[in-house]
């Protein structure tokens, strides 16, 4: 079912952030990208919980980087969106586009 499902709101945001960062996507950069673009404060834990879920669904893949001194000798975990992940983004975008078609969202509605 994971192959045909739609993305949740935060999954969608995280997946797009990973796509934007290309091969530089790890916890700190993903968090920074989301905060810079959505003006929404997110925790490292929320990012990792979502990325783990996306990895379990096969939408992202992770690999360990080398340990660095600025990280206290700990290694990074880099993420990359899979073809399945790109399909999920397209599917979700398609559904949203279809639902918003013909709606005047900019018009005032009180």
């Amino acid at each position: 079912m994971a192959g045909r499902g739609y993305l949740g709101e935060f999954e969608h945001i995280v997946l797009l952030a990973v796509l934007r960062l290309d091969d530089q996507a790890y916890g700190v950069t993903v968090r920074g990208e989301i905060e810079a673009r959505t003006k929404r404060e997110v925790s490292i834990g929320a990012i990792y919980a979502t990325l783990d879920r996306l990895e379990a669904k096969g939408y992202v893949q992770s690999r360990a980087g080398d340990p660095t001194p600025e990280r206290g000798g700990r290694s990074k975990r880099f993420f990359r969106v899979t073809a399945q992940g790109v399909s999920a983004v397209n599917r979700t975008h398609g559904a949203l586009r279809s639902l918003t078609e013909g709606l005047n969202l900019l018009g005032s509605r009180s």
């Binding site: 490292i44 700990r74 290694s75």
Partner: peptide, 9 residues
């Protein structure tokens, strides 16, 4: 390892 590294950075 990765979470604590991120927090440290």
């Amino acid at each position: 390892e990765s979470i604590l590294g991120d927090l440290h950075e």
